[in-house]
Write a protein that binds this DNA or RNA. Structure first.
Length: 583
DNA sequence: GCCGTTTTCGGCCCGACTGTTTTCAGTCG
């Protein structure tokens, strides 16, 4: 009997399928086979159920791009922890070729040439060979390619994964401001994953519409923040700025603005969907417009000037950028059934923020004033509980003092309202850090895990679900504990947490801290489908961090959340009723 | 390998830039 391999979840299976795709490319198999494996891997990452459940219910074939062959690989991975196809390929494709693929600019063909001739299998050896000038003797490789490989290795070493959205936005806004000042183009926009508000960013894309591209390109490639120009063409250039972040600029004619904006905003998969859809109608969609097939050379598109126009010509509603990931939005837009997503302007207050009473920087009054200036009706100050010593967590006496201060500030700020809150630690034992009587003295209680991250999955799940059962716990903050690019989520059965949220009417937080964005967009979607009520919070530790709310709302939007499903879109009176007895 | 107003086999999105090339393959997004 095959032993069940518990180590294999959706993510692990998707990773193996992607490796099969790479190996298949390296072996020189039909490239469309690799395309399909990658598409299946992505579909699995987007799944809102565990593969194991689908397998048990014989429903693996319901997953897009999963046919008999890939379903078999999945079953093998889930039951034995290995797949015969993967094993076969690793036997046939020399170890190390995969490593070479990770160097930007080196694809399957180049990797093959390098390996076949020099038997190189590590980045270190590749660097050494390039430095020694041994690559330039290979077919199709000359000095220029050798230099590029060296530079790619250097930036590979400099980089640590993807950029946080907040850092990428800062870089994007800086270059846009610079181009506006230098050339003042009529139409300029950040596109790509930054416009979609993805949680981490590979590179930044900027689009400009201008009759003449030359002057814009020149200004871009000579920007003060440029560390290296990667490519410089007539309509497209790429630069490298600080910390190895790449910025691409594309210039199109003004008449193509809408089509280009769509083309450079959608994820690859979303764009493939749209172009395939166009083809079925004998139409061609590219960055210049939507054309009748054969007429794309005439320069007479059916639609191109605005996104709305192009979507309409495809028979669809306009799709918010946050949804353009090919996760069902195309069909929903065709059926005119897209949800009306929650918007930042719907938010009436923030229910998770810290003050100088614990580890925040600013005072009760300063935080409240800033929240009121943002147009909020309320702000919950949820300082840490006593057990979190390093944050100077509040004991009973300091709770009373802080409550008094809040009452005084509230009196001055009416009708704006500060809510007396706490972010109570869920101890490793599962016990809350305050007794019931103390908890009852707060108007808002959000509970979270800040310790013993490495507990077993069952223990951690019981710990969190147990806290949700407490009558005074309104919400769970940053439910998975992840720190983007730094710390994985702790092991927790998110399905069980989601089910408990529905059962106990506990809200799950979408945390706007740029390094958290926890719940993730995919987890939000699962929670929304299950019927969970969310709360979008900034987790601010200083007045300006109240602006992090926009990241929480963007993440909720990416998970298809509507206004009705976000608790802090409620007016104060309704919210207070909702908080009491969990609504 | 998958899929179907192109329906069980033949096609699979599209274009820009680079480098090594005299017309194109490789890579990327």
């Amino acid at each position: 009997m095959p032993r069940t391999s518990l180590a294999y979840g959706n993510e692990e299976v998707a990773a193996v399928l992607e490796e099969i795709a790479d190996l298949s490319d390296l072996k020189g198999e039909n490239p469309f086979r690799a395309v399909t494996f990658r598409a299946a891997a992505r579909a699995i990452r987007d799944l809102r159920e565990p593969l194991r459940v689908l397998m048990e219910q014989k429903r693996l074939d319901e997953i897009p791009k999963v046919g008999p062959a890939i379903a078999e690989a999945i079953e093998q991975l889930l039951t034995t922890g290995t797949s015969t196809r993967h094993q076969q390929l690793t036997k046939e494709v020399p170890a190390g070729l995969l490593t070479l693929l990770s160097v930007p600019g080196v694809g399957p063909a180049t990797a093959r040439v390098i390996y076949d001739n020099l038997k190189i299998t590590t980045i270190d050896d590749l660097e050494e060979a390039a430095k020694a000038g041994r690559l330039r003797s290979l077919p199709k490789i000359q000095a220029k390619t050798e230099e590029n490989i060296l530079r790619s290795i250097a930036s590979l070493r400099q980089r640590t994964g993807r950029s946080l959205l907040i850092d990428a936005r800062a870089a994007a806004n800086e270059i846009v401001a610079y181009l506006r000042e230098k050339r003042d183009p009529k139409l300029i926009s950040v596109t790509g994953s930054v416009r979609r508000w993805r949680e981490t960013i590979g590179d930044v894309d900027v689009l400009v519409a201008a009759a003449a591209a030359g002057p814009i390109m020149k200004a871009f490639c000579e920007a003060p923040s440029v560390e290296r120009v990667l490519a410089r063409g007539e309509t497209k250039s790429s630069i490298l700025v600080a910390r190895g972040l790449q910025i691409d600029l594309r210039v199109v004619p003004p008449a193509s603005w809408g089509a280009a904006l769509m083309y450079f905003t959608g994820s690859k998969e979303h764009n493939v969907r749209l172009r395939g859809l166009a083809l079925k109608r004998k139409l061609l969609l590219n960055e210049y417009g939507l054309f009748r097939v054969g007429e794309e050379k005439t320069g007479n598109p059916i639609a191109s000037r605005t996104e709305e126009e192009v979507f309409a010509a495809l028979g669809m509603d306009w799709i918010p950028p946050e949804l353009r990931e090919d996760r069902g939005e195309v069909d929903a837009a065709l059926a005119h059934g897209l949800p009306r997503l929650v918007a930042l302007s719907d938010i009436r207050g923030d229910l998770h923020a810290h003050t100088s009473w614990t580890d925040g920087r600013d005072t009760v009054a300063a935080m409240a004033e800033r929240a009121r200036a943002k147009g909020y009706e309320y702000l919950a100050l949820t300082d840490h509980s006593v057990g979190l010593g390093m944050t100077h967590g509040l004991n009973a006496e300091r709770i009373r003092e802080r409550t008094k201060e809040i009452a005084a500030v509230n009196e001055k700020m009416e009708p704006f309202r500060i809510l007396v809150g706490t972010e109570v630690e869920i101890r490793s034992s599962g016990k809350l850090d305050y007794d019931d009587k103390t908890l009852a003295s707060f108007e808002v209680v959000t509970a979270s895990v800040h310790s013993a991250f490495s507990q077993e999955r069952e223990v951690m799940t019981k710990r969190i679900v147990g806290a949700m059962g407490h009558a005074r716990v309104n919400a769970i903050s940053h439910p998975t504990g992840r720190l983007l690019e730094r710390r994985d989520p702790y092991e927790v059965d998110l399905e069980a947490v989601i089910a408990a949220a529905v059962r106990t009417k506990t809200r799950l937080e979408v945390n706007g801290g740029p390094e958290r964005l926890d719940l993730s967009d995919v987890a939000v979607r699962r929670a929304i489908d299950a019927g969970v009520m969310l709360v979008c919070n900034s987790d601010a530790h200083a007045v300006e961090e109240l602006d992090q709310m926009e990241y929480a709302v963007a993440t909720a939007r990416r998970g298809w959340a509507t206004k009705a499903r976000v608790q802090n879109t409620m007016p104060l009176t309704e919210l207070l009723r909702h908080l009491e007895g969990k609504g």
